[in-house]
Nucleic acid binder design. Structure first.
Lengths: 197, 197
DNA sequence: AATAACTTTTTACAAATGTTAAAAAATCAG
DNA sequence: CTGATTTTTTAACATTTGTAAAAAGTTATT
């Protein structure tokens, strides 16, 4: 569909941090001093299942997919957009290996922090501990939202919801991925799209 | 099935608290001083959707169901067993009204803490803030587990998983509820059970 | 511009699950 | 214990979704 690239969202790391939980200058500085901005090129898997992942990432620009691999099935749990945190959950919580693979679907800018250093901060600053608490709480809400969608809504409704929220996602992500995210086959998604016209 | 009641798990509140994140005597005392043990009788809905819920509950004894109501559909998100926390998520995180109804399926013992007081503690104690962070992180893992089950496994596998984990749940919870939890109709669950024999 | 590789849609058929209704089984109340 | 109520299973049929393969459309490369 030769439309050319769509303008995409961008977010500064400090804004991402502050949006989770406001911090005083000193705490903010401590967090920022641990952070490192990286560019991840298209189709790079930067968090891999079964491998320890040292970092928590915050997406500033681009789009990623979080997916699980099981036997020969691959299922997309979520897409990440600017402003969102990306982690290997079990790794972050227990320090063990996790299930998630996370791949940049476009060349993306993200800021990362070493989880071990972050956890030191958690132990030494009440404000940052509460920041980490809020981060976790928002993740709960995000994943609960996803589960509710899956439990309550048909694939067709979930598709509508997705394009309402991210209107140009079909121009940035191939339909096979979107079908996987919705939990249906690509054939079913094609049928849904055919009935929506 | 005239078997008589099955012995059920029990948990002390202090053990539940310590299992989330170890606390020093003083912090533990602060938490305990805010807590209040209550008995909730069978079939009582003690957290209601669209109503503010002042408390976070920790189940010591009994079994509860967390369910959403939408139009005329009712879907069970989870069963709670001793040791688990029960909250209205949006209420806990944002102070707004939530989607969850939580009902005691058996007469249950639980300890509750006022969310507002707990949040005061979060602001004033690094250890308790980290305790709250861990609480949230474990909730993420729990709900992620549930989502993965739903995404990767057939209803039949999910049923097997459930009875492996809670072998006597079919004696304590009616199959209509279990079907709802599994995300299938009761007819489908009957078919699953018929094929498992 | 032509070819190859990849993505999306369509088709035909199979399998799984839902719906409705009724029967069977289990449980509860008096 | 017995009848009433609730829960669970079974049956018949409809609908949805999956599978596999082909066709159509798109993108990338030479």
């Amino acid at each position: 569909m030769g439309w050319g690239r769509i303008t995409i969202g961008k977010m500064e790391f400090v804004d991402i941090v502050r949006h989770i939980h406001p911090l005083k200058k000193e705490d903010l500085q401590n967090l920022l001093s641990l952070s490192e901005t990286v560019q991840v090129s298209k189709n790079t898997v930067f968090i891999e299942a079964d491998k320890p992942s040292k970092y928590i990432y915050f997406l500033q620009e681009g789009i990623c997919r979080i997916y699980y691999h099981k036997a020969d099935i691959e299922i997309i749990l979520a897409f990440s957009f600017p402003g969102e945190a990306m982690i290997s959950l079990n790794n972050y919580v227990y320090g063990t290996r996790g299930y998630e693979n996370i791949e940049a679907l476009e060349t993306s800018i993200m800021t990362r922090i070493e989880i071990a250093s972050l956890q030191d901060l958690y132990e030494n600053s009440t404000a940052i501990a509460n920041w980490g608490r809020k981060l976790a709480e928002f993740e709960i809400l995000k994943i609960e939202e996803r589960l509710m969608q899956k439990l309550f809504k048909t694939a067709s409704e979930r598709y509508q919801d997705l394009i309402r929220k991210e209107s140009n996602i079909t121009n940035r992500v191939k339909l096979g991925f979107i079908a996987s995210y919705l939990g249906v086959t690509q054939v079913t998604l094609s049928r849904i799209r055919a009935n929506t016209r």
